[in-house]
């Protein structure tokens, strides 16, 4: 089938290994994603907090710099679990907006254009397809969350010394697990929404709604029933709790309300849902997303 021959020719060359074939999807998807200048600019902005984080770590260990800036080291935020947790949560918010831009069209575009039979008639399974589409988000979100966070953790360990590194190794696992759980949740949710809603704008709006509408309802429940169990339906609160649990900053009792009618009559203590409940709900959401994907990602929909 050479251009000059104009004849049909079989391919007799080497084939790529089966395990790596799903990576073809993200490689081609990135070309489309970074074609948008707006997105590229936003993606660069996502690194600004990380730069600030790096500067703060550096300042903690550079006396000369502190002297020039006339800042006392005690005035700086301490580099501890809360420090890393704050930045992990901040990057998670950026990850959410990246997902809003990248996630919705991934599966929706293929479904709208009947492209699935073209993928699935090749030695390429439905699992590999979902894995490929998820890895688009996984790679992009990793680049702004746990990968730079772990590099900064290593930077801090390098400046602080080996003993700090050994004592705080658990922080590295908290950064990694917390970020990966968030990325998986975002990737699965956006893929499921993308598979259900074929229009990009509506899919983005739906994803936004899934995050914010239950949070509002959760807050209403919390305020009406004087509880914190409303957080169980808020994805943001669930992720925050899971992250706090991993970083060892989870406090179950979050609010005391003093019932006051001129005098103190009784104190109401509000407890956050237990950590296991947050993990369980996240697990259920991921399972539902996978079930939806398994229903929708098919070469052809069979009308029974």
């Amino acid at each position: 089938m050479a251009v000059y021959e104009h004849a049909y020719k079989q391919y007799l060359g080497k084939l790529t290994p089966q395990w790596s074939r799903f990576l073809v999807i993200p490689r081609h998807a990135f070309r489309d994603v970074f074609r948008s200048k707006l997105f590229t600019a936003f993606f660069v902005v996502c690194f600004i907090p990380l730069l600030i984080e790096a500067i703060l770590i550096y300042l903690h260990h550079n006396v000369n710099a502190l002297a020039i800036l006339k800042v006392d080291v005690r005035e700086l935020i301490p580099i501890d679990a809360s420090f890393f947790q704050t930045f992990v949560n901040l990057q998670a918010s950026f990850a959410f907006f990246v997902t809003l831009f990248v996630g919705p069209p991934l599966v929706a575009r293929d479904l709208r254009n009947n492209a699935l039979p073209l993928y699935l008639c090749r030695p390429f399974s439905r699992t590999e397809y979902v894995l490929g589409k998820m890895s688009v988000l996984f790679i992009l979100l990793s680049a702004i969350t746990w990968v730079p966070q772990l590099l900064l953790f290593c930077f801090q360990a390098y400046l602080e010394g080996a003993s700090w590194f050994i004592d705080n190794l658990w922080l590295a696992s908290a950064i990694f697990i917390g970020s990966v759980v968030g990325i998986l949740l975002l990737a699965l949710l956006s893929q499921a929404v993308s598979a259900l809603v074929k229009w990009r704008v509506i899919a983005s709006a739906t994803l936004l709604g899934i995050f914010f509408i239950p949070s509002v309802f959760g807050e209403v429940i919390n305020n009406i029933f004087l509880t914190r169990w409303g957080n169980i339906i808020s994805l943001g609160a669930l992720m925050k709790n899971v992250s706090a649990g991993l970083f060892g900053t989870f406090i179950r009792t979050t609010a005391h309300i003093t019932d006051f009618d001129g005098r103190v009559s009784r104190e109401i203590i509000m407890n956050e849902p237990p950590l296991w409940a947050s993990w369980f709900v996240l697990f259920v959401i991921c399972a539902i997303c996978l079930a939806l994907l398994s229903r929708k990602v098919k070469a052809y929909e069979v009308v029974r």
Partner: peptide, 28 residues
């Protein structure tokens, strides 16, 4: 396989589309 209905990946040039399909079939 050449399907009956229109089947494409939107926003791609033909060469990009056919190349993607070849890579999914295992070609380097």
């Amino acid at each position: 396989y050449m399907p009956e209905r229109d089947s494409f990946i939107a926003g791609m040039s033909a060469v990009h589309f056919v190349r993607l399909m070849a890579e999914l079939s295992g070609l380097p």
